[in-house]
Design a protein around this nucleic acid. Sequence first.
DNA 1: ATGAAAGCGCTAACAG
DNA 2: CTGTTAGCGCTTTCAT
Lengths: 362, 362
Amino acid sequence: MTEPPRRREPTTADVARRAGVAKATAARALGGYGSVSPEVRERVTAAARALGYRPNELARSMGTGRSRTIGLVVGDIENSYFGLATRAISEVAHAAGYEVVLVNTAERHADEADAVRLLLDKRVDGLVVVPAASFDAGHLRAACATGRPVVLLDRRRDDVPALSVGVDVVPAVRELTGALLAAGHRRIAYLTSLEPEFDHPDLELISSPIADRLLGMRQAFAAAGVPFADDLALFGAHSPAATAALVDRALEGPDPATAVVSSDAVIALDVLTRLRERGEDLPERLSFASFDDAPWAPLVDPAVTAVQQPIQQVGAECARLLLEQVRSPGDGPDPGAAPVVRSFPARVVHRASIGPAPGPRR
Amino acid sequence: MTEPPRRREPTTADVARRAGVAKATAARALGGYGSVSPEVRERVTAAARALGYRPNELARSMGTGRSRTIGLVVGDIENSYFGLATRAISEVAHAAGYEVVLVNTAERHADEADAVRLLLDKRVDGLVVVPAASFDAGHLRAACATGRPVVLLDRRRDDVPALSVGVDVVPAVRELTGALLAAGHRRIAYLTSLEPEFDHPDLELISSPIADRLLGMRQAFAAAGVPFADDLALFGAHSPAATAALVDRALEGPDPATAVVSSDAVIALDVLTRLRERGEDLPERLSFASFDDAPWAPLVDPAVTAVQQPIQQVGAECARLLLEQVRSPGDGPDPGAAPVVRSFPARVVHRASIGPAPGPRR
DNA sequence: ATGAAAGCGCTAACAG
DNA sequence: CTGTTAGCGCTTTCAT
């Protein structure tokens, strides 16, 4: 039934021999370049089929210098936010005949740098990176310097000459915060998984999405003429336990939060779990909202108000822009020019988890 | 600051010239094989650093015949079940110095076949595939025939000489179904996204996980001496609308279901949404359970009883077995031998969504 | 349109 | 230990 497993895979030379033509001719017919007479092409493809020939893409890439592969470096695929982005990117890439090499860095900067280097060594034609929070972007600048296109996903870096595609959350955050302020909340906690070491004046550089969220909150407070106290901007929600501790911190002490906002859907789950454990009354005595409108948000009790971010559009656009550059080399942004940023607007989905601020507790 | 962007990337030859040694010597020092005197090695690495040399992995792979890359073909990464598997696989692979090329097939058989072929053409060292439901596994057999190791994830195929790693759900399904039967349920609906065309005697071949679920249910019914009516095994829950329609079908008619079980967490969300819309009383008048214990399962109301599947372990083991074969070529299973299967047990997490079967409705 | 031959950047086999 | 010489399988001149 099955043909005897050949030790050596057939090459263009084998096909050429069998078809009685020169190696180059066979290669042309097989590779679909140059020109071959219909008759010869037919003979060659027949020989190829008979031999079970398959092109060696490695060799092909070596000759052409293009691998039809793009690299994707993400902090955490199991966060469905990035899962959706990954899906959109690979969809677009695949439609254009490109493959995606995925590297998960667990948000570790060193792994990210290694990944970028290795992908470049593997000669990917372009790179999509979700940069982990870090002061150092040398690896990204180095990547750009190779001349291969790089696109930043979800996070901007002013110090990297690459375009970036993300979500414009500021207006949505303003709206959300405004709604909370209008409901009488003054003490609003914000939880992010970002490490406390990054709670730093250069936050905009280190993690633009977090900076944007904080910026939107500040703007809303300012518009309402309410002083913004950033003692409730809580960093380090990277695990259920850590998040629980931060929730406790927000809800205890002399001037506790009356509303909690989580920076993504993963944290939201941990926050909600902790709030249940504490027996908090939502939305009567405590309000809650989350970034990322997860599919379960409408189903929990109370249904969670969320900032919905069009991450699939972001991913798709990212891939499109990258492939555009991949196809027209030298078209990348000048290392000197201002970084180009494209963003898609987020919107607030109002649900039941926000209520009027309660009177003093107990 | 930044060195002027070189048009041509430096090669071993450039490094060799600058270090005043032969190309092969430089290559040895850089590639970490053969033997070089410490002194020469130092000189070479210095030259490499000065030139900003980076190895061309493509060329390296071409010479060695190994790409240190494995292919991963999955139906749907945005389903966090496979997202977790992907994460585990890439973790293990990465730790072993392997990269992962990911292809999403949207469960389309043709895309899967193309992906497998293309990955082999790109000379991946091995392949992890979650085979989409299909009668035809020719592409997988062809992959095995190349001699490169292939491991099947989550789904078995008796007609493919590859090992497979999955979840043993049968005992858990028996337990879950037994619990429902003990609670008095007789009409239990099961919803799967598998297309109705696959509701076929060869289900075991087409999609072993679905076959297993049905098998476990049948066993539990048999053990309870209750006839199993498979008119409630509902296929085609591939979209919110389709799922809603199936829920309606299960809950209407002369002999409606009193319990619903969904085949995965994505479907669970759609089912719950529809049940809300219909105003069903859970768990008083209707019971519900799901495969995949999603993180939100404890948070919805009522908390969802679920079959928890150790997909991360499965993914990790899959990668381990694959890499083991990758490293010892010729160690793969004989095409003739019985396929090797490794599986990890699922367990039932009992929560509030299952209650006693109600009396007649209305 | 086809053939011959020269690379792509590296590894590998063989001398010295 | 180091240099020389071939490849790996394909693309790409350059002739013819």
